[in-house]
């Protein structure tokens, strides 16, 4: 028999789940003894379902471990089980007192466990909030940076309009003549397809000479406002879609947006 087919039939899963007849069980056991790959598959299936059921189980307090341990070790370990003792009247009061005390201890323990659970929950919450706060701070810094670029006195804005391949697309280029910095706002461009990136070109018009000033791997970084290389005296800017890594010259059929200074 082909082992792959045997494994793929799904019988091993049912074996681990305990859904086979005794005869089928024996057959699987025999196969597993003969073929290590069958045995390994059984172990992996078992591991997966143990993992799954483990992870969906509610919190199991340490108290349970101790309780079950006591029952098993004290009552069920020896060969001779302990017989219940004969009762007489005299120790009743003592037992009653003990019971009250136990209840008290049990109650305290319960309270303690609850408090422990709460502490755990609160500290988990705190960690979550801390990381949320950190994320927000990063986001805020990004926002501020973007705003500063847009607002800067020396920034001029060049609107890039959508071209034939993407009439609805648009972009903006901010040229800061003072700081000699150029930023591109990519928010109006569609998500690039898998394996493609946007490339930014500075253009001189006569004769038409494109120069690459940046390849954008993640157009959504920094709120979509991204710094590219500075290029003095550009007369126009264009954005094309290029294979990952960018191209030496722009693929003009994939010209998304274009704008004159």
């Amino acid at each position: 028999m082909n082992m792959r087919e045997y494994i793929d039939s799904g019988i091993l899963e049912l074996y681990v789940f305990g859904l086979l007849t005794e005869a089928e069980n024996n057959e699987v056991k025999e196969m597993a003894d003969k073929h290590p790959e069958v045995q390994e598959e059984i172990l992996s299936i078992e591991k997966a379902v143990i993992n799954l059921s483990y992870s969906i189980a509610p919190h199991l307090s340490a108290e349970n471990y101790q309780k079950i341990r006591n029952i098993l070790i004290e009552k069920h370990s020896g060969v001779i089980p302990l017989e219940p003792r004969k009762k007489s009247m005299s120790p009743y009061i003592g037992w009653a007192a003990a019971a009250v005390l136990l209840l008290g201890i049990g109650f305290q323990y319960n309270q303690y466990n609850k408090a422990q659970d709460e502490v755990q929950a609160v500290s988990a919450e705190r960690t979550k909030f801390q990381s949320m706060l950190a994320d927000l701070q990063v986001k805020k810094t990004e926002d501020e940076k973007a705003l500063a670029i847009v607002r800067d006195k020396y920034s001029t804005v060049i609107q890039l309009a959508g071209q034939q391949v993407a009439p609805d697309a648009y972009a903006k280029v901010y040229v800061n003549s003072n700081k000699k910095e150029i930023y591109v706002d990519m928010a109006g461009l569609p998500e690039p397809p898998e394996g493609k990136v946007y490339q930014i070109w500075a253009l001189k018009l006569d004769p038409l000479t494109p120069t690459s000033i940046g390849v954008i791997d993640n157009k959504n970084a920094n709120n979509g406002i991204l710094k590219v290389e500075n290029y003095d005296q550009a007369q126009a800017f264009g954005i094309t879609l290029e294979p990952a890594g960018g191209s030496a010259t722009p693929t003009l059929e994939q010209l998304y947006t274009l704008g004159k200074v």
């Binding site: 059921s53 969906i56 189980a57 509610p58 199991l60 349970n64 471990y65 029952i71 098993l72 069920h76």
Partner: peptide, 30 residues
């Protein structure tokens, strides 16, 4: 224990009752 508890809880949907059964299951195994 946690794997079995997960299975038991899926069926009973009650923590205390599930802990009770878990205990019973361990006694039976033992």
């Amino acid at each position: 224990s946690k794997s079995l508890y997960g299975v038991i809880f899926t069926l009973l949907k009650d923590k205390e009752e599930s802990e009770d059964i878990l205990q019973e299951v361990f006694v039976k195994i033992w």
